[in-house]
Write a protein that binds this DNA or RNA. Sequence first.
RNA 1: GGCCCCUUGGUGAACUGGUUAACACGUUUCCCUCUCAAGGAAAAGAGUAGGAGUUCGAGCCUCCUAGGGGUCACCA
Length: 547
Amino acid sequence: MKKELVERLLPGLTHDVEYYEKLYPERDVKNGAIVTRYAPSPTGFVHVGNIFQLYISKKMARQTGGILFLRIEDTDQERLVENGITKIIQDVAPFGIQFDEGALSETEEKGNYGPYIQSKRKEIYQTYAKDLLLKGLAYPDFTTKEEVDAMRKEQENSKRRIGYYGKWARSRFLSEEEIESKLDQGLPYIIRLRNPGDFNNKVVVEDGIRGKLEFPEDDIDQVLIKNDGLPTYHFAHVIDDHLMHTTHVIRGDEWVSSLPVHIGLHKILGFKPPIYCHIPPLSKKEGSTIRKLSKRKDPEMAVSYYHEMGIPIEAVMLYLETIANSNFEEWYLAHPEEDPENFELTFSKIGTSGALFDMEKLLNISRNFLSKISAEDFYQRILSWSETYDQEWKRKLEQEKETSISFLNIERICEKPRKDYAMYSEVKNGMWYIFKDFEPQEYEWQKITNKDEILQILDTYMKEYYDHSDNEEVWFNKVKLCCDTLGYALNMKEYKNNPEKFKGNVADFTTVIRVALTSKSRTPNLYDIMNILGEEEIKWRIEKLRK
RNA sequence: GGCCCCUUGGUGAACUGGUUAACACGUUUCCCUCUCAAGGAAAAGAGUAGGAGUUCGAGCCUCCUAGGGGUCACCA
């Protein structure tokens, strides 16, 4: 196409393709380093699936000495959300994901391959489109959306392959005179690729995760530049990943079907395509059907859900790691002390079929994780969680720091620590009775519910056996003695053999003390709890029961 | 509808042509035990979607069928 006409189609461009090729030279990274990116639309919404993808990207970049950058794909003006970029970065940061380069906020960025926001790269895309126009590999299309729709209907009715290709690509055949006259009329237009591809040819692509993939060659005249002058996703990503020297494109597998388009585009533009790695979607079972996790239908899949429930991000990451490479779990079990960072992730071991998101397994991982951290660490985590989700609880925790930590420390420093909690939000319910001003709502009496019997047990125990300075062994021996004098079996075996000989057993007996002191029938070790409560509080709580 | 991808116990999965199909979560049982949470021991649960073929031998290779998913925009 003649230069003057091209200038009319895409006016005001000051550089040519060579300029940009020189502007963004090869990256100075060692051989085999993976350069990859996270390229979201700035909708401000991050989803566990995104974190999954991001985790894989980050891990791959780190373990090869490569680069992970953030590029914002905002070529769809209608979907912009205010502060979307900042929101994304904030949602992702707690998961330990920092970008080596790219957008930092709505207005700032770092790195030598920018701009990293596509709307700011308009001229670059147009320059490449212009080059294609000059070479006759692209053309303007004045067809309206309505006309395209009508064409599709016609194709559907006549059972033909749908799309703007071959002889259906009517604007392909416009003469330069016709184009000029339409421009004179001021008609809106887009730029399409004049696709030399042949649907009957096969293209074989080696996917980094799935291996060999075979498709018919793409022959559709894809839209390169939209009516608003911005590029489509296909065109923009191909140019960006070329200029930014991305080595691996890691993305969701909803993209595999557009792979032929992207491969074709690279070829036409003379670029070497990156390695495409398509990761499977996280799915969910709903009734009997399995479907991909969706941000609209599954609010619990939003990253904010994890923050709200107080599921430690480390646990989420561990879970995602086990999904990504199932040999991780085995490795982690074998090397419990090692930093999960040291595990080497392998592309080829990433499954291809799409895992069901298993909340139960995640919570199990979380419980294990929380059982291994120190009580102080746990306390701090609950504190910072409650900062945003339960202010009143936070104040309580701050006032009672010592007590809280002691409580969280019960049966923690030992070979087989307790695994009571999977989420920070669960702690309050299991812990509140430890504080001085606790007001019991309801006592969870079990087998023994008769008030006189309860009071007799408590009185006898408190008067004749209780001594706050006893150590655990002495304490428990006294409990047993008290049992005995009141007609409760102190030996479980004996009780099981002749239950009719006793009023109950040690368990029933201690349950009375437990419930009297905490109102709960299930708590951690009673001795430790009594120790934390202190003598005065114990007496006070038992006194209260008389009323 | 075209094109593409996927299919191993309830769930995640290992075994990448070689005896009885790992392991983890979950489930059940028993043991331990002051309740609970754990912990210990054990069990149940798939013959690899169905069929055909290649092979001495198939979960692994090929083909067909079925089911599920994705995609066919001036959205990404």
